[in-house]
Design a protein around this nucleic acid. Structure first.
Lengths: 335, 335
DNA sequence: GTGAAAGCGCTAACAT
DNA sequence: ATGTTAGCGCTTTCAC
């Protein structure tokens, strides 16, 4: 097989200069219809695939947006991504995803790597980053959007909800329904800052009502039905007086419901349950679980719009730099 | 803020030539410890981020592996991705993900786009592609690995299971347990070739046993608990004689279980259920559902190894080009 | 161990 | 509407 054809080859085949071939293929500038057709035919016959590396180097424009997420294993971040993709779909930009595994050192490496490709913008989850990451991002000179969380000081732009507030809101719902013995099941906090903030907001609201958490369980790794079930069983075995459990994730909460189904506990009669995120999963359950919508799709969409609006070539540096969405709490049938 | 520092800036600051700075930063060749330290200090103080676009153009090496999946919304493809990431972790290569939405035209665009960045390899789901996609891939001159499915002719390399066989295997389990009135619930086939092949294998096995599908329901879009529940209800309402339903996804099957829980149907006494994939979700359910493990993590891992082994610089073109994994069927407690 | 020259494949800017 | 020149920021190659 011959060496990969370059623009030069295409131009020669079409009998025009490289520049004309370049223009013709990019559909831009003034190229006569006949010339364009000839160039396109040549490109097609040669199986020419443009080399964007060269193109990007020459034009100093890269139509890529870096997206850095802690994980893709729950449906949470893919939904944010789908908001991003949607907003980028009728733009020249394309998302490139990197995953950190909730590890700030790894995040630093991923961000460094993304920046080395000189993307048009960067979207990343959370406001907590290593010192080096923050510095790189500050000097990157591209729109940087931190998403999901607004409890903190963003580097550049930011879209999300207040997780402290989300926790406090659910606490209010729970307290209003008369629960006094309240348990919590959540991820080990240092890993997941947003879950930690929800718990903090939740506890603060309890305190203000003269209450405190009756008991809690922590876990590491991904949220699963099985873990939710198991930890619910364990928590209840140890603290049978608990009448309501707040989970840091809907998946865990659904696991709690599975425990109740298996043990014939009535919800919310014997045990009330509340989760977080408003995942699609909740729709098929035998009972509507209490949850708080985190507006993931919307967050992704707004973030992408911020990147689009914040690029050099746009004068639109005016747009909001911080967008605070309001978490929506629904009590369902489980409180 | 000053213009982004380049290698030239770093070299000047460190008082060495560009070449020496380049070598020092890449940790390669012969550079004295003192020189290296000076260069590193200069780079750090300037906040230098190397420009890989230039590096890639000059070296003609890109340490990226394109990964093209139909979707990231179920946990299926993220699990394959995690297998890929795991295998790539102690290599210089990094995955870059593209999503097609089960649309072959979009796949063509995504592949074209990826190839224009000259990745070191490409991993994509399925064996069905547009004519153009196949041609691009054939001429790409990099390892191309088609994953998930082995029922067909791969372009280059391939790792997966036979979905026809998976369907046939589950049919055998179901028939062996005496079911004769068997229903099917699955995605609209043209969209998802693998689901279609499972159904084909399933039906063929039924035929060989002198049976036929009693009834079926199709749906579009993602598999959800809610849809599983709803379609199960609809199917049973129309064909109450059905004693077993085969679903094209565990999520839908779990939705079927939710229907049974809500309607107080005993499983498998009143209705037997079988899904596909062996998703983590199954672990927390009140009952172990029958399923077939599709070995997603393993598939990702092997695919990444094939890319690593197939690169130009490796002589290892010897390795297997087609790896057929065996789907593992488990009847659980629902048949 | 270090440096100088050449060029990767394309596009911006300026001709014509 | 098309061509020419220069150069993007780095690495390869070869020289010392």
């Amino acid at each position: 097989m011959a060496a990969k054809p370059t623009l030069k080859t295409v131009a020669a085949t079409a009998g025009v200069s490289q520049m004309t071939a370049s223009r013709a293929l990019r559909g831009g500038g003034d190229v006569s219809a006949r010339t364009r057709a000839r160039v396109e035919a040549a490109a097609a016959s040669l199986g020419y695939v443009p080399n964007r590396i060269a193109g990007a180097l020459a034009s100093r424009h890269v139509n890529l947006v870096g997206v850095v997420f802690p994980s893709l294993s729950s449906t949470v971040f893919p939904e944010v991504l789908s908001g991003i993709t949607g907003a980028l779909d009728d733009s020249p930009l394309q998302p490139v995803v990197g995953v950190t595994g909730y590890d700030l050192q790894r995040e630093e490496a991923v961000v460094r790597d993304m920046l080395s490709w000189r993307p048009a913008g960067l979207i990343l989850a959370g406001l907590e980053h290593s010192e080096n990451t923050r510095n790189m991002l500050k000097n990157a000179d591209i729109p940087v959007v931190e998403v999901m969380d607004v409890d903190g000081v963003p580097i550049d732009r930011c879209v999300g909800i207040s997780h402290r507030r989300a926790g406090a809101m659910m606490a209010a719902e729970i307290i209003a329904r008369g629960h006094r013995q309240i348990g919590f099941i959540g991820t080990k906090m240092p890993q997941d800052f947003r879950a930690g903030k929800r718990l903090a907001g939740f506890q603060k609201a309890l305190e203000r009502a003269g209450l405190a958490l009756a008991d809690f369980e922590h876990y590491t790794g991904p949220s699963t039905l099985a873990k939710g079930r198991e930890l619910t069983a364990r928590l209840l075995a140890r603290s049978p007086e608990i009448s309501c459990i707040y989970y840091s994730s809907d998946t865990m909460c659904a696991g709690g419901l599975m425990h109740c189904l298996a043990k014939n506990l009535s919800v919310p009669g014997d045990l009330a349950l509340a989760g977080f995120n408003n995942l699609e999963l909740l729709n098929g359950l035998p009972l509507r679980l209490a949850t708080t919508d985190s507006h993931r799709f919307q967050i992704g969409k707004r973030a992408a719009q911020m990147v689009l609006g914040g690029r050099d070539d746009k004068g639109d540096k005016s747009g909001e730099k911080i967008v605070v969405l309001t978490p929506t709490t629904s009590p369902g049938q489980s409180l």
